[in-house]
Write a protein that binds this DNA or RNA. Structure first.
Length: 688
RNA sequence: GGAUCCGUAGCUCAGUCGGUCAGAGCAGGGGACUCAUAAUCCCUUGGUCGGUGGUUCAAGUCCACCCGGAUCCA
């Protein structure tokens, strides 16, 4: 086969927020495919980057009192560490906030402008005067115009499913400051899509899957709407050439980040971006989730085409991750972050399980946690790894650790398995990883059957050389499986390479017999998963999100509750109506501190009060009486952190002096919950 | 509301052009073995293929409607 030249990307993760197992559905499958292509001997470059621009990052940085640059640097570090732990093999992991990206974004924009594809028109948009900025949809909250549910997002209602404009919301509020936004006009720049209609119509069916293309083509019954690519200052991003106060919308420069990162990578080896992207022989593949199809299959190819760049060879679209058959949920503990996963479980287990489930379609993928444990333990460890474990240890113990020549039966089985290699490679090629795993598991079943039939543990007592032949066969069969699994389990394969003393495997090595040489000491390749570790991971995830929902309630309950409340008779409203507006100075008078509960006891003579002893970082702990006895037992509080009002005038009570007050929230049903920091902090830390 | 996708054994899923397709693995039950990470091997119990109609000599497979779940509507 000719040597192919392949550019691979996965969608850029947004730098505001932690990686979770859903993201990994994409990154892992892209990595599987990239590694497979490398093992086929092709020239592969796999790039990705942090997506760093936009309002959410600007706001978050502002809240934390740091620059956006500092925020994205922190995110980058965490991201790279976590990807590394998951054995991701990027050739380069960059950032959209780089010079290459600025240059490319500007040049693509200017090309579009030259071609007359950029137009400008005035747009009505909500503006928050207090924050001094136009509000993106997700930064407007309000009451759903359709079902009346309170506190809904700016563009859709998750209670009744309605979609609307932020301007349609009743009682719109700025999600940042809570103020009431006003309607203002602003000049915005659009990329016109209608002129690209014919190009797209022809392009779509050939460069993505049928379902995706058909879906997008539905929109072609009407004129294609232009795409707003500008945002007004303040914004974190690239300034648009020719404007002082306009920036590229984050979605304009994000896909350009693929090229920018490729460019930066090419530079390190003395090449140009054009050497890769514009090489007619090179293939360009984007792996994306189905939620961002329109950016990658409409806007992106149109821009590239108009600006004179090559369009992608194929856009591979995948579905979302479900956990235990349902959408990932914070309250159920299934919204599992990459970091939390890694604290409890080995990365390769997830890589293996995802490979067993991915079939290259846009269907959602289900991570069933019980199935996950079963699959890893029985297939990866029990069937596959066990062959190496029993074969290598026996060879080392009884046969001097030297391979001989395979017996005839093993040789025949090995030959039979090898005939399936083309099928395995085709499965990899079409991203049908689960099919590839079925093939490998089938080999393992057959190898185990043969091993048992030969009974080497008995044979070794009478004929060491015959035993050596059987074990040589077993280990050669296992080696074939390790090669087949290498795109999924690179670290595992590296250990197998070390066991046989071989150079890194490519698929070509599958044809080789390993005979007549010594093997190294057997090193454990994979560990069984203790279901308790999975429980602990779920429990930790739940705990991270515990303050979000009252005990025992799921997100579904809350939705139902909101729905009820939306239709509840007036007079008993929840949440309570907003209090009178205060100035920032008024708020600043309140000194809020993180406090650690040192001790808690019930107060005799009161059925409401607990006496709390709080460490606020001062020389002497404070005593605070709190009316939370019906919500908390005294013994569950020590060691936990709460928020207290530290400068409240001390108040003499019948039971003693109360030197402050702890913060708690009251739910619709009267449930009280103390407020605690997301993660432990130093007692005495001030809230801002 | 409109559209798309999904619904096959307790669980996760295969089932190509309608014709040995009612299947696999795991889990469950029984047995064997003890080299191996309580791993492995043999045997075995499970299903009205979401429901109802229709097309056909023949339907998980095609069509219509319904129920349930998911997603998208720029």
């Amino acid at each position: 086969m000719d040597k192919r030249k392949i550019i691979i990307t996965s969608a850029l993760p947004y730098a505001n927020g932690a990686l979770h197992l859903g993201h990994l559905v994409e990154y892992l499958q892209t990595d599987f495919w990239a590694r497979y292509q490398r093992m086929m001997g092709h020239e592969v470059v796999y790039v990705c980057a942090d997506d760093t621009h936009g309002t959410p990052i600007m706001i978050r940085a502002r809240k934390e009192g740091i620059t956006p640059e500092a925020l994205i640097a922190r995110s980058y570090e965490a991201r790279v560490r976590e990807f590394g732990a998951f054995e991701m093999g990027f050739d380069r992991y960059g950032s959209t906030n780089c010079e290459e990206n600025r240059i490319l974004s500007e040049s693509i924009y200017l090309k579009l402008k030259e071609r007359g594809l950029i137009s400008s028109r005035s747009v009505d948009q909500l503006y928050c005067e207090r924050c001094g900025m136009f509000l993106p949809d997700r930064f407007v909250k309000g009451t759903c115009p359709k079902c009346g549910a309170p506190d809904r997002d700016g563009d859709n209602c998750s209670v009744c499913g309605a979609t609307y404009n932020p301007a349609d919301l009743r009682e719109p509020r700025c999600a940042i400051c809570g103020g009431t936004p006003v309607m203002r006009q602003s000049e915005q720049l659009f990329v016109e899509l209608e002129p690209c209609r014919e190009f797209l119509k022809g392009w779509l069916p050939q460069h993505t899957d049928k379902g995706t293309a058909e879906k997008l083509l539905e929109w072609f019954n009407e004129p294609l709407r232009g795409w707003n690519i500008s945002r007004d200052a303040p914004y974190f991003g690239f300034r648009i050439p020719g404007y002082d106060d306009k920036y590229f919308y984050v979605w304009l420069d994000a896909p350009v980040g693929y090229m920018a990162t490729l460019w930066a990578w090419a530079k390190t080896r003395g090449q140009t971006l054009e050497d890769w992207w514009q090489d007619p022989k090179a293939e360009i593949y984007h792996f994306i989730g189905k939620d961002i199809v329109r950016f990658h299959c409409l806007f992106w190819p149109s821009e590239l085409q108009a600006a004179g760049w090559r369009t992608p060879t194929q856009v591979f679209v995948h579905g979302f991750l479900m956990v235990n058959g349902a959408k990932m949920s914070k309250s159920e503990g299934t919204f599992i972050s990459a970091a939390t996963y890694l604290r409890h479980l080995p990365a390769q287990a997830l890589r293996f399980y995802y490979a067993c489930k991915l079939n290259g379609t846009v269907d959602d993928m289900n991570l069933d946690l019980r199935d996950f444990v079963g699959r890893v333990n029985s297939d990866l460890v029990g069937k596959i790894t066990n062959l190496a474990s029993r074969g290598a240890q026996m060879l080392n113990k009884n046969c001097g650790g030297r391979l001989g020549e395979m017996d005839a039966d093993s040789r025949a089985l090995l030959a039979e398995c090898r005939t399936q290699l083309p099928e395995l490679q085709e499965a990899y090629e079409r991203r049908d990883f689960c099919r590839a795993m079925v093939i490998v598991r089938d080999w393992a079943d057959k190898a185990n059957q043969l091993f048992d039939a030969k009974m080497p543990w008995k044979l070794v007592k009478e004929d060491v050389e015959a035993t050596r032949a059987v074990l040589t066969g077993t280990l050669n069969l296992f080696r074939l499986m390790a090669i087949a699994l290498k795109p999924i389990l690179p670290a595992y394969a590296a250990k197998v390479e070390a066991l046989f003393g071989e150079a890194p495997y490519a698929f070509a090595d599958a044809a080789k017999d390993v005979e007549g040489c010594a093997i190294a000491a057997y090193e454990r390749l994979a560990d069984r998963i203790d279901p308790k570790a999975v429980e602990a991971m779920v429990a930790e995830t739940k705990a991270q999100n515990a303050p979000a929902l009252p005990k025992g309630l799921t997100e579904k309950d809350v939705k139902a509750g909101i729905r009820q409340l939306a239709h509840a008779p007036a007079g008993k409203t929840f949440p309570p109506p907003p209090a009178e507006t205060i100035a920032i100075d008024d708020f600043a008078k309140v000194d809020l501190r993180v406090a650690q509960v040192v001790a808690a006891e019930a107060v005799e003579g009161s059925d409401k009060l607990l006496r709390l002893t709080l460490d606020v970082g001062e020389a002497r702990p404070r005593t605070v009486f709190a009316g939370i006895r019906k919500a908390y037992a005294p013994e569950e509080l020590p060691g936990r952190q709460v928020i207290m009002v530290a400068n409240l005038a001390p108040r003499k009570m019948r039971f003693g002096l109360s030197e402050g007050m702890v913060l708690a929230a009251e739910d619709a049903d009267g449930t009280l919950r103390l407020i605690q920091p997301f993660a432990p902090m130093t007692p005495g830390a001030r809230l801002r």
